[in-house]
Design a protein around this nucleic acid. Sequence first.
DNA 1: ACCTGAACACCGTTCAAGT
DNA 2: ACCTGAACACCGTTCAAGT
Lengths: 216, 216
Amino acid sequence: MAAKPPKPKPKAAPAREHYHHGELRRALIDAALELIGSGGPEAFTLREAARRLGVNHRAAYRHFADKETLLAAVAEQGFWALLGAAREAVGALPEATPEARLLAIGRAYVRFCAMNPAHFRVMFGARLNEGGRFPALEVPIAEAFEVLQREVASGVEAGALAAGTGPRMAALSLWSAMHGLATLIVTRRIAVRKERLASTVDTLLEPTVRGLVAKR
Amino acid sequence: MAAKPPKPKPKAAPAREHYHHGELRRALIDAALELIGSGGPEAFTLREAARRLGVNHRAAYRHFADKETLLAAVAEQGFWALLGAAREAVGALPEATPEARLLAIGRAYVRFCAMNPAHFRVMFGARLNEGGRFPALEVPIAEAFEVLQREVASGVEAGALAAGTGPRMAALSLWSAMHGLATLIVTRRIAVRKERLASTVDTLLEPTVRGLVAKR
DNA sequence: ACCTGAACACCGTTCAAGT
DNA sequence: ACCTGAACACCGTTCAAGT
C-alpha cells in the first residue's frame, strides 16, 4: 500500500469541490446569517464565512463587491420576506374588521422578526442605504409601509377607524409599536416563550390598535 | 537662533501633557461618543480614540479592561441620563392626568434618544450585559421601567386607566411604542425636524396612550 | 479568464522592556 | 509603579502572480 501523501495544508472544512453559479453566493449569505445568529453581527467576517465553506476568502469577491454588499443582500432578502409575511397576514382575513386586520399585520411583523433575529439585525442594524448605495432596499420597505397605510385608510373609509391626523400618521404609530415590540423581543429585553409569542404580541399591540379605532 | 530639533514622531494631536485622575477616562468616553456620532458604532476604535487624544493606545487600558467595558460605561451613563429625563418629565406634572403624565414620559424618552443618537446606539445596540458581565446596566433600566409601571398603576387606581391585563403589560405596550418610535427616528426611517419633534412624538404616541385609557 | 496567495493597512489585546 | 513600543492574531481589501 502506498503511503498517502501528506496534505500540504489542513483545511477547516472538507472543501466542496465546486460551487456552480450562484451556489457560493447563497452559501455565503447562509453562512453570514449563521454567524450573526450565533455570535452577533460582529461575529460575521468574510474570512470566517469563507473558511467555513472551504474556499479562499477572496472567492467572496466574485459574488459581492465587498462585505457591505453581502449584508445588503441579506437585508434585501429579509425585507421581501417580511413584506410577504405582512401580505399573507392580511390576505388571510378578507372579511375581518380593520382592527383585526391591523393586529394581524402587527402579529406577522413581530413574529417574523422574532423568528429571524439574524435577518432582523442586518435589516434594522446599520443603515446600509445611508449613502444611497443600495436603493433596492427601499423598495420592499416602502411597499410594506404601503400595505399598512392602505389598511388604515380603508378602515377610515369604512368608518371603523377615527380619521385622526391621517392614515400616514396612524400607520406610523402602529409601525412604531410593532417595531419597538420586535426590537425589545429580539434584544431579549422582553422575554417571551415561543408558544406564547402570538398571544403576547396581541396583548401588547392591542392598546395601540384600540387607540386608532377609538373615536374620541 | 538655534534650530528646533526635529520632532522624532509626528503626533496626530498636540498631546496634552497629562491627564490627571479620571480625566482620560472621561475624555475617552467623549471621544467614543464623538466617533460613533459621526461615523457609526464601527467608527469607534480604541486606537483612533487614543490617537485623537494624543495618548498611546495602551493608555486606555489603565481605565477600562477592554473596549467593551468602555462601551458599557457609555451605556450606563446614558441609561442614568434617560432615567433622569423620564423622572423630570413626570415630576414637572404633579397634578396632570395619567394620560398627560404617560405622554410626557414618552416624549422625554423619545426626545432623549433623538438628541443623543450615539448614546442610543450604544445603549440599545449590542447587548452588553448578555453574559452578565455588566449587571450595573440593569439598574437604571429597571428603575426607568418602574417609573413607567408605577405611573400606569396609579392611573388604574385613580380609575382613569382601564385595568386591562395589568400595569406590567400596559407599561410594556407603551415602552414598545416609545422605543419603536425612538428607534425609527434615530435610524432616520422617520424624518422629523428638530422643532417639530415634540409635537410629532405626541401625535404618534397618542393612539397608544389613548388605547390604554379607553375602557372598552 | 479565472482563482489564489502574499501584502497592506488597519484592529484589539498581550508581552516585555524601558523609565 | 507606571507608561509604551513591539508583537500577535485577527480583519477587509488590493495587487500581482499563477494556471
